[in-house]
């Protein structure tokens, strides 16, 4: 790969990450910046090595399988280190909260899980959309590999949230907009997985699932902005770009570390799962047979 292509690929990743971050931290306030970044991302996507001349070569399951295998340990170790450091900050360094006492420490799993539940859905919808538009098998496999992890994080966000709500608000569950839309998000994940499972032809399942994921993506902004639209029991977000976080620095640090740890974990797990899916679906391909023979030897 030439230097130019590497720079394009890096630029693409940075543009898309920045757009996602701004969207989640500042919402619609910076919609212009966000649209510009997404546009930039799209332009770079067309230019970068992975999405132009070499796209089909790089995006074939055959060449991705060993690449993913090499990437997994990195992300797994990164997740392990981050989670240990994050837990240390969360429990040993972060101080007691002035109004919630120690119960606020649930924030260190609840908020990262809630973030991941939404980010994973967006990533899933993104890969599903790419799979649908470019008709690439691997993108659809990525979407399929992300769904179960996303469903688990959604469930965790709901359960830890209700365990936090009981001592603080005085109830395990209220039907407010944010809780309800997070529950709907769980149903959307389950629907996506059920639809894929019940269509026998895998290519057809990929495309049907992709369409459903895109239709459901309408729900994600509703979840995020429901707090602002409806005046609900759930507090606003503590972190906004441009303003200082409404949290003590060490608390913020613990939360961000845990979120990064969850992120790395998600990537590692999704890569393992995509390798499984590749093996299961390409069982009859020559390269899979060669590979299995090689691994026995």
């Amino acid at each position: 790969m030439s230097l130019k292509k590497i720079i394009f690929a890096l630029g693409l990743i940075i543009a898309l990450t920045a757009a996602t971050l701004i969207f989640f931290t500042h919402g619609l306030n910076y919609i212009g910046v966000n649209v510009a970044l997404l546009g930039l991302g799209a332009v770079l996507m067309r230019q970068s090595a992975y999405f132009s001349d070499n796209f089909y070569q790089h995006a074939s399951p055959q060449s991705f399988y060993p690449t993913a295998g090499r990437m997994i340990p990195w992300f797994a170790w990164l997740a392990a280190v981050l989670v240990i450091y994050g837990l240390y900050i969360s429990f040993a360094i972060a101080p007691t909260d002035f109004q919630q006492g120690e119960a606020y420490r649930i924030i260190f799993v609840h908020v990262p899980a809630a973030w991941m539940s939404m980010v994973i859905y967006l990533a899933m919808a993104f890969w599903a959309g790419v799979g649908l538009a470019l008709n690439s098998k691997l993108s659809a496999m990525m979407a399929q590999a992300l769904a179960p992890t996303g469903a688990i994080f959604t469930l965790l966000a709901l359960v830890t949230g209700s365990l936090w709500g009981k001592p603080m608000w005085g109830t395990y569950w209220v039907w407010d907009a944010r809780l309800t839309s997070e529950l709907i998000l769980l149903f959307l994940y389950l629907g996506f997985m059920a639809l894929q499972a019940s269509i026998d032809d895998p290519r057809k399942a990929d495309r049907a699932g992709a369409l459903l994921a895109l239709v459901g993506a309408v729900n994600i902004p509703i979840i995020y902005f429901s707090v602002k639209w409806w005046n609900t029991l759930h507090q606003g977000s503590s972190i906004n770009m441009g303003a200082a976080p409404k949290m003590a620095a060490t608390m913020f640090e613990g939360m961000i570390l845990m979120a990064l740890a969850f992120w790395m974990y998600t990537i590692a797990v999704a890569l393992i799962r995509v390798r499984c899916i590749i093996l299961e679906r390409e069982r009859n391909a020559g390269w899979v047979k060669e590979l299995s023979v090689k691994e026995i030897a």
């Binding site: 709907i184 389950l190 629907g191 059920a194 639809l195 019940s198 269509i199 049907a208 239709v215 729900n219």
Partner: peptide, 21 residues
């Protein structure tokens, strides 16, 4: 979406009801 899928009756409910909320 569920045209031709297995067990489509129940599947329609799972896909559509969340969007109806």
């Amino acid at each position: 979406l569920t045209l031709g899928a297995r067990g489509s009756g129940l599947l329609v409910a799972l896909l559509v009801l969340p969007l109806y909320i």
